[in-house]
Design a protein around this nucleic acid. Structure first.
Lengths: 196, 196
DNA sequence: GGCCATCAACCGACTAGTCGGTATGCTAAG
DNA sequence: CTTAGCATACCGACTAGTCGGTTGATGGCC
């Protein structure tokens, strides 16, 4: 922890504190004290407190987008890939709960421009996921009674709210919740077993 | 409104501003100016800025709990009542989006004690809803492959997430989204048509 | 080798301003 | 007179961000 690069340590502590107390309720003082550095160091690596928040978002978005692309373009039937993608996003969200909490609590506090670019990135992710559902609906593998966009909003609502109830030391692991959520998604699309 | 016009006006403006800019990013000055009163008036009716937030929460919780109880204890089959309750909470959330946004963005900013009581109230609501699902699972009307608690977490995630994408002037009304979401919930529980 | 220049990394006292909250005063009603 | 219902002026605490300065490592030059 001590020999970890300064920049990373600041980011890690900021993430922890933002998730704990909220962005606005956390002062730059608290962050630098927690990270064992000074204000000078922090403003050497980041432009502003907002920039710190933006970096946290960018890191998460990059990671999730990469994983989704790999799964969606990977092998397996459509059912299998959708199930895999759904379970994966739940599992990785559970594994990075702090990032998730910060994301949905604080995005409105960013500068309008920054907010716009973050939302755009988020939308691309959403659309990639929706395309999987829409493809299945066109192929009559999934029911099209509910529009694909709405199904995806429905599903991701559940994922994003993991931060409000999930605990790493609770009765269920992230992987278990992921499997259940993916099952619920597939079932609600009228798809039978994944292995059909 | 006619009992205490000033108090209500302060609450209404605070709700609007909190939803718009966030709790911490909104100053008491801005609230009183928006409401056309002074700080003295605000601190006459409320103990603190936190108290203002707490009142907003309490109002929402009271309303939702009352509606759920009326539907759950009302007439109709279990399927019908669950469908009705699900659609209703979506519709009322959509109709009070500001309250919903504030709720999930700012609850962590309340004093720990207040937070605890709000969470407890929220949990009672959750449990009442879960009991409907669990009852159906015991009666073999719903699939019990996924635990009732998890199904409810799944569903309410979607509801709470409405604040991030739903717009009153969008392509779908709150009632339409409510019906779709309720359909998805019932389908994911392996229940056929509601009218069976 | 010895010497100097350069530069990123970091320090921390400081500024200018904002914040939530309070003390006190005033007015109208009962 | 008392009390409710506000208004106004003000305070101390705290904030994000700045800026002149220090330190240690590196590289070119003689």
């Amino acid at each position: 922890m001590k020999d970890e690069p300064v920049r990373q340590r600041i980011l890690a502590e900021a993430t922890r504190l933002f998730a704990d107390r909220g962005f606005e309720a956390t002062s730059v003082q608290e962050i630098v004290v927690s990270a064992g550095v000074t204000k000078g160091a922090m403003y050497h690596y980041f432009d502003s407190k907002d920039d710190l928040l933006h970096e946290i978002y960018a890191r998460v978005l990059r990671m999730q987008m990469e994983r989704l692309t790999r799964i969606a373009d990977g092998p397996g039937s459509l059912k299998q890939r959708l199930h895999r993608a759904a379970a994966d996003v739940v599992e990785t969200t559970a594994a990075n709960l702090d990032d998730s909490k910060i994301f949905f609590r604080s995005i409105h506090l960013l500068a309008p421009e920054t907010q716009k670019s973050v939302r755009a990135e988020r939308r691309r992710y959403h659309e990639r996921f929706r395309d999987l559902v829409a493809e299945g609906q066109r192929a009559r593998i999934f029911s099209d009674r509910v529009p694909a966009d709405l199904v995806v909003d429905y599903f991701f609502g559940s994922v994003h709210h993991l931060g409000t109830w999930f605990h790493a030391d609770g009765p269920l692991t992230g992987a278990q919740v992921g499997k259940h959520f993916a099952d619920l998604l597939l079932t609600s699309l009228g798809a039978g077993d994944v292995d059909e």
